[in-house]
């Protein structure tokens, strides 16, 4: 029960800290002092207090989308296991509904971008749609391949399967971590796929879709995307975490890993430049090969007698 409570706590409040850490790391690399660590929270509250500017062209879709996006991300966060591998809703095939609920949010984001009838938002929408189409199958294939290893088909079961017992597991874990990192970077539109800081509309994906949102709606969307970072990072964290740890150790390790991920994101964003747009699909397609590699390793390890 306490895990569930902690989960909700982390889900709702950790994102601001997470973003703060990233910003701080980036400031460190840039030789700046950086903004306060909870600056994103303050921004969020400020946005909630503001009024709105709405495009004349838009319709109801434009107004409900931010809410839907936030709800889907939160719901996805309730499904994904966090502290001590516990998730709030757990059943067979729950990772499917996880993926599909995120997709629901994306669906409305795209519609909302198109709703403004701005050609820039349309660009972002079409890129968003294409890139996520490339990662979703990989996400499911990797998860179900791991599930195949242990006959587990729930999120929790799948993530606890891989332990650093033998060389194969370590190999698989590292492959999966790479894969999920790419998924996370793509889904949350971080460097090198997208740069949240630039404002050159032609090359952006996520930011350009929300050009016309303002006030509480913009706040919802930003908050939602922060939560999404946490949600996807906790999958990676749970992949790395060994099973059967004591509760407190598990909690601490989990938070530590999250913070490490934040630091890593900060470092990457400081060191690397954004990829050229033509290269992005190739970068994303990298995970397809990782997924196939994972699948073949698992098949080989089971039917080749390596288990």
């Amino acid at each position: 029960m306490i895990e569930k409570f902690l989960n909700i706590l982390i889900l709702f409040f950790f994102p601001f800290l997470f973003i703060g850490i990233i910003n701080r790391v980036k400031a460190f690399w840039g030789g700046r002092k950086g903004q306060p660590i909870f600056q994103s929270f303050f921004d969020f509250v400020k946005l909630l207090k503001k009024g709105q500017v709405i495009s004349k062209n838009s319709s109801l879709i434009f107004q409900i989308t931010p809410t839907i996006y936030l709800v889907t991300v939160i719901l996805a966060g309730l499904i994904v296991p966090m502290v001590n591998y516990q998730n709030i809703f757990s059943f067979d095939g729950d990772f499917l509904i996880f993926a599909y609920i995120l997709a629901f949010g994306r669906f409305f984001m795209i519609l909302s971008a198109m709703d403004t009838s701005s050609s820039f938002s349309g660009m972002g929408a079409s890129r968003e749609a294409t890139y996520s189409a490339l990662i979703e199958p990989v996400f499911l294939v990797i998860l179900s391949s791991i599930g195949f290893l242990s006959d587990q088909i729930s999120f929790k079961g799948i993530l606890t399967t891989l332990q650093q017992n033998n060389i194969i597991s370590v190999l698989l874990i590292s492959l999966c971590v790479v894969a999920f990192s790419i998924i996370m970077i793509t889904e949350c539109k971080r460097v090198p796929v997208d740069d949240p800081n630039t404002h050159l509309e032609l090359t952006m994906i996520h930011e350009v879709m929300i050009l016309d949102n303002s006030g509480p709606d913009l706040g919802f969307i930003l908050y939602g995307s922060y939560i999404k970072l946490i949600v996807l990072s906790s999958i990676i964290a749970n992949l790395i975490l060994p099973a059967n740890l004591a509760f407190w150790i598990a909690l601490c390790l989990f938070l530590l890993i999250l913070i490490l991920i934040a630091v890593a994101i900060g470092c990457i964003e400081s060191i690397f430049a954004r990829l050229r747009l033509i290269r992005v699909p190739q970068f994303i397609l990298l995970i397809t090969s990782i997924a196939i590699l994972v699948l073949s390793i698992i098949q080989f390890s089971i039917f080749g007698g390596l288990k």
């Binding site: 993926a99 599909y100 997709a103 994306r106 669906f107 795209i110 519609l111 198109m114 929408a125 079409s126 749609a129 294409t130 996520s132 189409a133 490339l134 979703e136 199958p137 990989v138 996400f139 499911l140 294939v141 179900s144 391949s145 195949f148 997924a291 699948l295």
Partner: peptide, 20 residues
Amino acid sequence: ILSIGVLSFIGSLAIIGFTM
């Protein structure tokens, strides 16, 4: 497993299509 991949792939393509 591959079927799962294909199904989810066409699922996301459907999203592209129907949002369009």
